[in-house]
Design a protein around this nucleic acid. Structure first.
Length: 364
DNA sequence: AAACCGTGGCG
DNA sequence: TCGCCAAGGTT
């Protein structure tokens, strides 16, 4: 097997110093999770920011911190409450791991996050990059991140060929990133360096149209000098995504609908959603089983696109024909009736939430 | 190692 | 409209 080797040219031996200087003047300094060394706040932001843009995270972060001001409060909360606050943010394993991590910190670390990157990386939901981000921001550790921003910056500045999602390329980038860390840096320098990597990638070295004129590495950047900004980093190999179809039951009793809890793993794991079936007839059977007598009224098909497949949802509305009390036979922890105006208390998948919000609007 | 896991914004 | 992907981790 071949190993990809990347070297740092002489002109870029001051990479970290230049980046730190740039960050102090042109970087971001007022994001909600900055200007603190509280590992809890930093950790929470880093988890939310995994594969998620800053503007999307901010309102979730504020709400989350308001409800769970510290790791003890989060650890003591029911998972269901955490899922409800996370609903709409996506990648729900993050929320389940977040809750597990908080409990681990309380039970095994005395309520304080461990400082060493190796210890952080052992916690649920914290990988190598997130561990480095927390360790550098909260504890001034000399550890490098390698997120999408850094991969883009490195690919362009150093002319790294190959798709960064490929193991061989990613490994080379880890090694390169490690070699670029500032050698003699105090805590503030380390924070500025890590933040600088993120800021450069997020504000200047963006995917579409990078602002190379303002970049501190413009003169030495392989992509800029050779005009290959659009070709680096190498794009993910494209693959056709399949389409799946599902039928969802909107079982109504006046203003309320029935939700069922999804299994903890898989798509929308741990969220509350509408009962599903793989076809019209199968859904009708389920409706009857729940005591519905009327006919199922179709709503418009809604299409939801995930990263790796497309989902066509066929909603069918049916009124509950008998007393809700008869549901006691099928009702348990996995089934709940919720008024449409009280959905905030439940973690509901985004497209299902939109569907139910539309229904509530049409009832008013 | 590659697939799985959400959602929204943007060109 | 649609392809692309963002402060990745887990299996």
């Amino acid at each position: 097997m071949s190993t990809l080797s990347l070297s740092v040219p002489a002109a870029l031996t001051d990479f970290s110093a230049r980046l730190i200087a740039w960050q102090r003047v042109h970087g971001r300094h007022d994001l909600p999770w900055q200007n603190t060394r509280d590992p809890y706040r930093i950790w929470l932001s880093e988890i939310m920011l995994q594969q998620t843009q800053v503007s999307t995270v901010i309102p979730y972060y504020e709400r989350f911190l308001g409800r769970f001001p510290d790791v003890a409060a989060l650890a003591a909360a029911p998972l269901d409450d955490v899922m409800a606050l996370w609903a709409g943010l996506g990648y729900y394993s993050r929320a389940r791991n977040l809750h597990r991590c908080a409990q681990t910190v309380v039970e095994q670390h005395g309520g304080a996050f461990p400082a060493p990157v190796e210890a952080l990386a052992e916690l649920p939901g914290i990988g190598r990059s997130t561990a480095a981000a927390i360790a550098s921001f909260a504890f001034g550790a000399r550890a490098t991140i390698l997120d999408g921003n850094v991969k883009r910056v490195l690919a362009r500045v150093f002319g790294v060929e190959g798709f960064p999602g490929e193991k061989r390329v990613e490994n080379a980038m880890w090694t390169l990133a490690e070699s670029l860390l500032p050698s003699n840096a105090n805590d503030d320098d380390v924070s500025a360096y890590t933040q600088g990597l993120m800021d450069l990638g997020a504000t200047l070295c963006v995917r579409g149209k990078p602002d190379c004129v303002r970049c501190p590495f413009a003169a030495d950047c392989v992509a800029n000098v050779t005009g290959r900004q659009r070709e680096l980093p190498v794009a993910r190999p494209k693959k056709a995504i399949p389409t799946r179809r599902t039928w969802m039951l909107v079982l109504r009793d006046g203003n309320a609908v029935m939700l069922e809890k999804r299994p903890p793993s898989g798509i929308w794991g741990g969220l509350w959603s509408l009962p599903e079936a793989s076809g019209e007839a199968a859904l009708a059977d389920r409706a009857q089983g729940y005591g519905a007598s009327g006919t199922m009224m179709p709503l418009a098909t809604l299409t939801h696109t995930f990263t790796h497949f497309r989902l066509d949802i066929e909603p069918r509305v049916v009124e509950l024909g008998s007393l809700r009390a008869t549901l006691a036979s099928v009702g348990d922890d996995e089934t709940v009736w919720v008024a449409l105006h009280e959905l905030d208390a439940y973690g509901v998948p985004a497209p299902v939430r939109r569907l139910l919000d539309t229904m509530q609007g049409s009832l008013l």
